[in-house]
Design a protein around this nucleic acid. Structure first.
Lengths: 263, 263
DNA sequence: AAGTGGTCTAGACCACGGC
DNA sequence: CCGTGGTCTAGACCACTTC
């Protein structure tokens, strides 16, 4: 097969030259691609604060020279960084570090939301156990109707005030350790991601308003009939598997969902 | 040394050939780029139903041959289509038409939402006019505190049932024609986009739950205190200008917001 | 005019997938 | 094995911005 390669399509003289050039063509056997190395180098300089938003990134030609690659390779590196929003390219002017991203529509657990506000989340577990009769939820999780589901019901606190009731469901077969996790102390998301090896990807959510029934009113310490924001989330892993189903009821006035929608 | 390299790489005879080839290098002076033509051709075949989701798209090499371009150009066309989610590329296997995209987090007006469900939207204008005392809303629209704001209050109907109350605000100075538009018959979004030459881009939204006060209860024909989903949208144009501010109150049980959030 | 990104060539070898 | 996409070369000309 090496022979086959050597039986190249060029006349002798050119072929030798071609072979020589090939020495420089892909010096990366099994290594990280050259364009990724360039990207990493730029990203490192950005993270180190050496390149700040608005600053000029080295041009394609300069990167090609610095990293000893062809223009197309340097270009590939910058094009991808631009696609990812790390840099902005302006025709005729140059490539610039993009302003820092504001994350919209980011899926965060309650613990994480509080942390992002500089607060510590507190929870009180109301009930936990295994259920087998939640056919509709089992179906949403892609499980047979009578599958064993772990179920956890927590009241979320801001200070000492109860502000939300969250009930989550998961496949007990797939995540048996979750039933015994200290979820009054740990975040469900971080347990899944760090202890169960699941990477969460996104959630499809249904949002509407309801009012508190007797039980919720008691748990949240509000009058019965008070309006609540209800969010039902079906959370998917990076492998596209429905992993957790969460229903949350949030006290009005204590919780606002912020999202961005695009035309 | 540089000279030597140049001579070595491009001896005279080759240079002339190279010049000739240049005639064919960019035969597109001022025209649409070749890679876009390839993309259009593929998109046309998809829209015509000639290529269906899952079908194999011609390979890079085949496209290069068919459109008489180099491999890199054909590749560029496919790479961009993949980035846009039109096709999926599988290393070693080929390029396939991607399954149709479900649009999440899409900004739609009420009229458009109804249309997407195959229904016709009806509205009843409750009030309309100019206000000058909505300082906070003026500020959100990036206007001076006492700017003249157009204001329109509409009840949205499903069949004969009132299901939502929507109040929108805009700069009367910028969009004076909006005040006299037949907005009981036309969609606000389509009026802005087709009559005012504004391209809408996205909306930042705040979503929570409240309950109906006396006036809302009357307008929506529901008991006072009924819980409502409240959505406040600040809608931006493609030029990044805040264009319209909308507050909507949606009857619980008659309206569910569906979104997707990412980790 | 100099420098930048955008398009493009005519190939090369490699890694992967399916028969 | 053979075809596919992924990486890469060593350049070219064009269109645009900035000076």
């Amino acid at each position: 097969m090496v022979k086959w390669v050597e039986r190249a399509t060029r006349p002798r003289g050119l072929r030798i030259r071609a072979r020589r050039e090939v020495q420089g063509v892909m010096p990366n056997r099994g290594e990280e691609p050259a364009y990724r190395k360039i990207q990493s180098a730029i990203l490192r300089r950005i993270e180190a604060g050496q390149l700040k938003p608005g600053n000029l990134v080295p041009s394609e030609r300069e990167l090609a020279r610095l990293h000893r690659v062809s223009l197309m390779t340097a270009r590939h590196a910058l094009t991808e960084l631009a696609r990812d929003g790390v840099v902005e390219r302006r025709h005729g002017a140059g490539t610039f570090v993009a302003p820092p991203k504001v994350h919209f529509n980011k899926l965060l657990g309650y613990t994480e939301q509080m942390a992002s506000l500089g607060l510590t989340a507190h929870s009180r577990i109301v009930s936990s156990g295994i259920v087998t009769r939640e056919h509709e939820i089992a179906a949403r999780l892609g499980l047979p109707p009578t599958a064993r589901l772990g179920r956890l019901e927590r009241v979320r606190l801001a200070g000492d005030d109860p502000v939300a009731l969250e009930i989550c469901y998961w496949s007990d077969e797939e995540y048996p350790t979750l039933a015994n996790a200290q979820l009054d102390k740990t975040s469900l998301f971080s347990f899944l991601e760090h202890e169960c090896g699941v990477e969460l990807a996104y959630a499809d959510e249904e949002i509407d308003a309801t009012d508190a029934d007797t039980r919720m009113a008691e748990l949240l310490n509000i009058p019965k009939g008070t309006s609540l924001l209800r969010m039902r989330q079906l959370i998917f892993s990076t492998r596209g598997r429905a992993t957790v189903y969460v229903t949350g009821f949030y006290r009005s006035g204590r919780h606002t969902l912020r999202i961005r929608r695009f035309r």
